[in-house]
Design a protein around this nucleic acid. Structure first.
Lengths: 216, 216
DNA sequence: CGGCATCCTCTTTGATACTG
DNA sequence: CAGTATCAAAGAGGATGCCG
């Protein structure tokens, strides 16, 4: 990117991460630190491969990403964020916060791991002393697993033998229920497929704000 | 901008404000809400005039900016942020926070009003009950005025007849002193021109973190 | 003067094919 | 798997002109 060449911290930041696709590459690496080139391509539908290669090189030059060549047996390259790269998380979160209202419709491409950051932001274990619970989400390309961990809640791709609850449905329904914008029964009426213990969901979901009845 | 077309809040946000110059236009309007076209051009050195016009139209279409035609006597147009536009402030602040370390050198264009947001973020009135103080900053194209107001601190372009203190010097020096990264005497040794009451500066500046001796 | 629109050039992006 | 090479299309930059 042509530099703005301004003595302004925000402009300097945009000089580095303001290029098209750049912040979305950082998003991918925030969700799954240690990603292969093809993982990134999969998580960034539509990106041209030369652009991905260029951006990764620029991010490396700016000290945001490191390239880690795994030893010969596996022979693959892993891309990771440096601490400086991880420091971009507040930027992505602020953008996500602002962009939330634009998500009314579930159009376009979707990868279920994109829910990891927004869900971790919304979820909280309201009964940290109780035994841990696990919830499986099925919405998109691969299942997600929610796990409580001493008050914190972790979200990652994965499954477990006997989850306490399982949710299947469109991303807005899942996000609505867990984000506290949609009642569980209302979501089921709108097509959510729910199995297991409703209390497991209530335990981690953000409390409802009031009368809201529509998916985010 | 070609849309990313992803069901991801951050990607949706970038669909709207990810274009080149867009967030810097928002920055200008966050600093001085109610700006004329030429004010924006002045605050965005290097922008092509057609680009500014296009971006303003897009921002208007997205409900981020409103255009207010002043009545015939003055015959000028004022651009303002909507609440939705003001909601972008956390995004700009997060970018600024991350970009701060890139400001080591005072190269490139500079407009003193660009200091308003970073300064308001750093400053705090540590003695709210004491009578208000004013500090003038001279560093760039126009003087800035810092005013305490019942615990809050406001920064705006302007001057006052008898400020409690006056700082003249390069932007990094000013930012270093007020941000708590640079001792006042050290800054004077590096070329800061200081007049008035040092306590006025200490009252609003962010406390030093420890041993730091270099400008940010 | 303030607020653009037009025209032209140059750079960046996108799409696809191909390679060690 | 992790890219490079190539080429067409879109966008940005810069100059200038227009109109109330």
């Amino acid at each position: 990117m042509r530099t703005y060449d301004q003595f302004c911290a925000a402009a300097r930041a945009l000089d580095v991460v303001g290029d098209r696709w750049t912040l979305l590459i950082v998003r991918e690496l925030l969700i799954r630190d240690g990603a292969r080139y093809t993982d990134l391509q999969y998580g960034l539908p539509g990106i041209a491969t030369n652009l991905l290669a260029n951006r990764l090189r620029e991010l490396e030059e700016h000290g945001i990403v490191t390239r880690e060549a795994a030893p010969p047996p596996v022979a693959t390259t892993l891309f990771r964020l440096t601490p400086r790269g991880e420091a971009l998380k507040p930027v992505l979160m602020a953008l996500g916060e602002w962009g939330g209202p634009l998500l009314e419709t579930a159009s376009g491409e979707f990868r279920s791991h994109w829910l990891v950051l927004p869900l971790e932001r919304r979820l909280q274990d309201h009964r940290p002393e109780a035994p841990p619970v696990t919830i499986e989400l099925h919405t998109g390309d691969q299942p997600l697993l929610i796990e409580t961990d001493h008050g914190r809640v972790h979200v990652r791709p994965g499954t477990v033998a006997t989850p306490d609850a399982t949710l299947r449905g469109s991303p807005p329904l899942i996000l609505g229920v867990l984000g506290g914008d949609l009642d569980l029964t209302a979501a089921c009426a709108q097509g959510l497929d729910f199995e297991g213990d409703p209390d497991a969901v209530r335990r981690v979901a953000r409390p409802a704000v009031a009368e809201s009845q529509t998916a985010e």
